[in-house]
C-alpha cells in the first residue's frame, strides 16, 4: 500500500477537506410524479435516485403478509453506466442482493412498521453515478472486495428522503456515514473513494442520529479495539451532520410545496 499521508501536517485531506468535514451533499425531494415518494441525492460524486411505492396491498406473495407489521421490500440496483468500466448487469448479483437486505434492515428500524398491517412498502434505489477515479485500475483486485458498499450511505440517505416524501411515518431520520482512521490515531469522516483505496480500514454505520442508536455496522479490514471507539464516535457525528443537511432539505421542500398550494388556504407565510 502507498504510504501517502491521508491527513497532511496542516490537517487537510487529499481532497482538501478537514478530518470532520463531509463531502458536499445536495439533494432534492419529489423528483418524479409516478411513485408515491422519490428523492435524489448527490454525496460527493455518488449520485443516487430513490423511489418509494406504497403502502399498498401485498403484491408479490400474499402469504408473506403480516398481521402486525408492514412488509418492506427493497431493491438496490446500479445503472450499467454508473462506473467508469461498463457493468454487465444492473442488479441480481450477490453484492446487490446483500445491499438490498442491508437497506431493508436499516429502514425497518426507522419506519413505524406496526402502522400498516397486511401491507407492503417498496423502496427502490438506483445508483446513477459512482464515485471512483482512475486509481480503479491499479488496485482493481483490492477494489473488488469493497466495491459496492461505499455507495451504501448515499442509498440509505436517499431512501430516507424518499420515505419522507411519500409521507410514511418514521420514528426519526435514518442516516448513514463512513469513517476511518488516518496517521494511526486521527479519525476522519465520510471516506472518499481515493481515501478508501489508499488508506486502511473503513467503518460504515447506519444510525438513528437523534437517539444515537446504531442500526447497522459494517467494517472492512481491521481496527484496533482502542481505535474503534474513536472511529465510531466520528461516524456517529457524521450521521448527525448528515441528518441536519437532510432536515434542511426537507424543510425547504415543504416550504416550496406549501407555498405553491397557498398553505392550503390558511394564509400563513413562512420565511426561509
Amino acid at each position: 500500500m502507498s504510504k501517502k499521508e491521508l491527513i497532511s501536517k496542516v490537517g487537510l485531506r487529499l481532497d482538501g477537506r478537514r478530518a470532520d468535514e463531509l463531502r458536499r451533499i445536495r439533494c432534492k425531494l419529489g423528483v418524479f410524479s409516478e411513485p408515491d415518494g422519490s428523492a435524489y441525492i448527490e454525496q460527493g460524486l455518488t449520485k443516487v435516485l430513490a423511489a418509494v411505492y406504497g403502502p399498498h396491498q401485498v403484491r408479490s406473495n400474499r402469504l408473506k403478509a403480516q398481521a402486525d407489521a408492514v412488509i418492506i421490500n427493497c431493491q438496490f440496483s446500479m445503472a450499467v453506466f454508473s462506473t467508469s468500466e461498463r457493468k454487465k448487469r444492473p442488479r441480481g448479483d450477490r453484492k446487490s442482493t446483500e445491499l438490498s437486505l442491508h437497506l431493508r434492515q436499516a429502514l425497518i428500524a426507522a419506519i413505524e412498521v406496526e402502522k400498516y398491517p397486511w401491507s407492503q412498502i417498496d423502496v427502490y434505489v438506483e445508483v446513477l453515478h459512482a464515485d471512483g477515479g482512475t486509481i480503479n485500475v491499479i488496485f482493481f483486485k483490492f477494489n473488488r472486495i469493497i466495491d459496492l458498499f461505499r455507495y451504501f450511505p448515499a442509498c440509505v440517505n436517499a431512501a430516507t428522503l424518499a420515505l419522507i416524501d411519500a409521507g410514511i411515518p418514521i420514528k426519526e431520520y435514518v442516516c448513514a456515514c463512513t469513517a476511518s482512521i488516518a496517521n494511526d490515531n486521527q479519525p476522519m469522516v465520510d471516506i472518499s473513494h481515493e481515501e478508501e483505496i489508499l488508506g486502511g480500514p473503513t467503518l460504515t454505520i447506519v444510525a438513528l442520529p437523534m437517539c444515537e442508536k446504531v442500526v447497522l455496522m459494517e467494517m472492512s479490514q481491521r481496527f484496533h479495539l482502542d481505535h474503534l471507539k474513536l472511529v465510531l464516535e466520528k461516524a456517529l457525528e457524521g450521521c448527525k451532520n448528515t441528518k441536519n443537511i437532510l432536515d434542511q432539505a426537507v424543510q425547504n421542500h415543504i416550504i416550496d410545496v406549501g407555498a405553491s398550494t397557498g398553505w392550503a388556504g390558511t394564509g400563513e407565510k413562512v420565511k426561509r
Binding site: 411513485p35 430513490a50 411505492y53 450499467v80 427502490y124
Partner: peptide
Amino acid sequence: DCSANATPDFEG
C-alpha cells in the same frame, strides 16, 4: 434497463 423506480412491476 427498466429500473424498478419506474414501476414496481419492473422489480427483479
